[in-house]
Nucleic acid binder design. Structure first.
Length: 268
DNA sequence: ATGACCATGTCGCATGGA
């Protein structure tokens, strides 16, 4: 089974590219983030026409997560128990979606950005990660032998190897010790980064749109696949498809997301 | 050249992204 995660930065503006990539890449299950589409506008038909079932969670034009699968899609869960909201008054955000596909449990996650360390969004990010950890460990305890992966845009570079120049990021979100500690806590609970051992360090998944960051290889590794033992032990390969960060052609409307898909092959 | 931000809602510009 081929599983992927991709922050598409608007599904509707890139729908043809996403559907075409699902098919040509041979992806069986794909978690999507930043779909930027409310549920009543989700392009269900395009996925079904391509042979994929799809579950989605979008409240407005921000955030939004989905899971597309051609190997079954069951037990869909929206958010997770205890997921915090943001703002005053507190509002729910569409950042987590779970589903079981071909015997594999996946959570499609769009971790809050944090914006800056002195912004309320940063405290929200850490609280969101605490709540996610509690929910994930509960699910892990309930189904210890079922393959489970927490996949998506974690908005955290795990180490300094995961940014193109650590000096540029001093004082920024994504690299602070509290964020990295929150990520490492998942490792303590039994979740493993299954991609890094297959790619080696320095293989990024995100490049800013500005200042030619992609051709200059100025990226970050923030899109992660963390699997439990049952998931990690079945991984046979993993890669980042950098081709999808490139423009598709000379015509307009075919631009890339600022993230590339992360792909994992499983022996299931 | 992979090439000098992009997406949303809404129609000029605010907001979010990292």
């Amino acid at each position: 089974m081929r599983v992927a995660t991709w922050n598409v930065n608007s599904l509707r503006s890139r729908l043809e590219r996403v559907i075409e990539w699902l098919q040509t890449s041979g992806t069986d299950v794909c978690a999507l983030q930043e779909t930027k589409v409310a549920d009543d506008k989700f392009p269900v038909m395009a996925f079904e026409a391509a042979g994929y079932e799809v579950a989605f969670h979008g409240l407005n034009q921000w955030n939004g997560v989905a899971i597309a699968s051609r190997v079954g899609l069951a037990d869909v869960s929206v958010g997770f128990p205890g997921v915090p909201g943001f703002g005053d008054p507190t509002a729910a955000e569409a950042r987590a979606l779970g589903a079981t596909c071909g015997g594999v449990r996946l959570w499609s996650l769009y971790v809050p950005n944090g914006r800056s360390v002195d912004d309320p969004h940063y405290a929200y990010k850490l609280e969101w990660l605490r709540a996610l950890r509690a929910a994930a460990t509960d699910e892990l305890a309930a189904h210890p032998d079922r393959p489970l992966a927490l996949v998506g845009d974690w908005n955290i570079a795990p180490t300094d190897d995961d940014v193109w120049d650590p000096a540029v990021f001093v004082g920024s979100t994504h690299v602070t010790e509290p964020e990295r500690a929150a990520l490492r806590a998942f490792t303590d609970d039994g979740f493993t980064d299954v991609v890094l051992p297959r790619t080696g360090p320095g293989v990024f998944s995100y490049w800013d749109y500005q200042q030619l960051a992609f051709p200059k290889k100025r990226g970050m590794r923030i899109d992660l696949v963390l699997g439990n033992d049952a998931f990690a032990s079945r991984v046979t390969d993993a890669r980042v498809d950098r081709e999808q960060r490139k423009p598709k052609g000379s015509t307009t409307g075919q631009g890339p997301s600022d993230h590339a898909p992360v792909v994992v092959d499983l022996d299931v």
